[in-house]
């Protein structure tokens, strides 16, 4: 089918900083093969990597579903982590709850969610304390 969407699924392991970024790298490779506009690929790669890293840092991992259509790339990251108490605050540049061990690795600058917002065309975050968080990212592909 010519216009069938391409769907990809990934599992992100908890606290696995060694493989963190694998899903984003894999999606990037797929988008390159599909010949998607490089700017879109860059934007999606940045946004998705930040979201993937957030899952590893804060949420004991989770799942990622990617849906690629000719019009856009839609990524849904779901976790069963602690949830985000104050999403508005979490969106502020420089605000981070990451521990020192994570900061030593070069993360925890408080730029994760701001970067996701900056590089996506649409961002939806739903979170419930003690239940988990779902982050939906959309990057449009110009026709």
């Amino acid at each position: 089918m010519e216009n069938a969407n391409l769907k990809l699924h990934y599992n992100v392991d908890k606290k696995d900083f060694i493989n963190a970024g694998e899903a984003s790298s894999s999606v990037k490779k797929v988008l390159r093969k599909l010949g998607v506009n490089p700017e879109c690929i860059r934007n999606l790669a940045i946004a998705m990597y930040e979201a993937e890293i957030n899952m590893v840092i804060h949420a004991n991992g989770g799942t990622i579903d990617v849906d690629i259509s000719p019009e856009c790339i839609h990524v849904v990251l779901s976790d069963s982590g602690p949830g985000i108490p104050d999403i508005q605050r979490a969106m502020q540049e420089g605000y981070s709850t990451a521990g020192d061990n994570v900061r030593e690795l070069g993360f925890g600058a408080g730029m994760g969610l701001p970067n996701i917002k900056k590089y996506s065309d649409d961002l939806k975050i739903t979170s419930e304390i003690g239940v988990g968080t779902t982050v939906e990212i959309k990057v449009n592909i110009p026709s």
């Binding site: 900083f17 970024g21 694998e22 790298s25 990037k28 940045i46 990597y49 690795l105 070069g106 993360f107």
Partner: peptide, 14 residues
Amino acid sequence: IMSNVNVVAVATLT
């Protein structure tokens, strides 16, 4: 001066 494995992921993605 970062020298951990995440440097590779960032280098790949950028």
